[in-house]
Structures are given as C-alpha cells and as structure tokens.
Amino acid sequence: MIKANKIEKTYSKTAILTPVLNDITLSIQKGEYVAIMGTSGSGKSTLMYILGCLDKPTKGELELDGVDVYGMDDDALSALRNKKIGFVFQQFFLLERTTALDNVLLPLIYANKYPDDALQRGRKVLAQVGLEDRVEYLANELSGGQQQRVAIARALINDPDVIFADEPTGNLDSQSTAEILDILGHLHQEGRTIIIVTHDRTVANHAQRILELKDGRIAEIKNP
C-alpha cells in the first residue's frame, strides 16, 4: 500500500539546515493498523504529512498504491488526497457554525464529480460513527468527542484507502478517547489501512505495528 524509500526531509527556515527525517524506509501493507510514535518534535507529524501527500520529502521515493507520488504536481496530489486519503487531526478542524452533515460533505466539493447520493452518503458515514441523531447540529454545538467523530466521518466520505490520524485523542477525555479508538478499531476490522500518530503508548498499543521515530530515524518496536 505505502512504500517509502530513503526519505529525507530538511527544513531550511533559518540558515541552518535542520534535518527532521533522515533515511526513512518503510512499507505499510493494505489493511494494516500502524502507529507512529515519538516524542514531540521527533518528526512524526512530518512523516505522516509526507506519507499522506500533504507535504513533499526533500529526497527519497514514495509510492502509494503502486503509484509514484514523488514526482506528482500539487493538483495531482490534491486529487489523490481527495480520493484515497482521509485525515483526522488533533484539533478536529471542523468548519465552525456549519452542520455536521455539511462538514462531512466538504471533501465532495473538491471531488471530480459531485455524487448524486451525497446526502445519503453523508448520513451513512455519520451513522457509522454513531452520530445519526446529530446530523443537523452545528459543529460548535457538539462535544469534543462528537466533533472528532464528525471528523472521522468526513475522512470516510470518499471511501478512502488510508486513514491518517494525527494525535486523534490528544484533545479528548478518557471516555471519548476510548470511543474514538473503538471506531478506528472497527474501521480496521472492515479492512481499512489506518496510520495513527501519537506520543501515547496506550493509544499506540491499539495498533498492530508500532514504529518509533527518534532523531529522525525509524525503529520498529512492535511487529506481530
């Protein structure tokens, strides 16, 4: 599903080049549930953004579903994200004062063709995360856990191959955390590829595989 070969990422915001990722080589199979762990500043989010085609590596090869991603232009990457990738973020990033349903439908606006059954699809994914009775609620009227569930539903609307979750439980209480991890677990059982980025070992333990980032290098610490 995802193949990364010798990926490097360097930031040159100041005169000093700061390597964030160094010689990352990894491979993730379809249907895997992988956690990327690391302390804050270890580059785990950067790695996720690169794997999720939101950012480009400075060097290296990246293949997604057998397609070389490294050489793609911005528009092609956008289309790819739209079709094949779903994102869930720590801050939820829902549009405020916008209904749960409209938030969920957001990716469809940027799809090549707006599906005729958009509304049904939106309701269906909201039901999948247990929010069938919150469809018309505004984002800011929902609790944190509910907002994150809307975000997951939004990630699901285009039936993506991979879901990337960046500290999805970082802003949630323990009960909501459990709910979200439960939903991600279900999605994995349905056969989706899930990549979760976290600093929290108990969260990472829900995954089949744990990759740890340290000083820009990767170490496999749990492999079934």
Partner: peptide, 11 residues
Amino acid sequence: IRRAVGARKND
C-alpha cells in the same frame, strides 16, 4: 482542512 481533503490551490 480544505487543502487536506483535496482542494487544489486554484480552488
């Protein structure tokens, strides 16, 4: 978030 879900620069 618009960019993340697939909006192009042009959009």
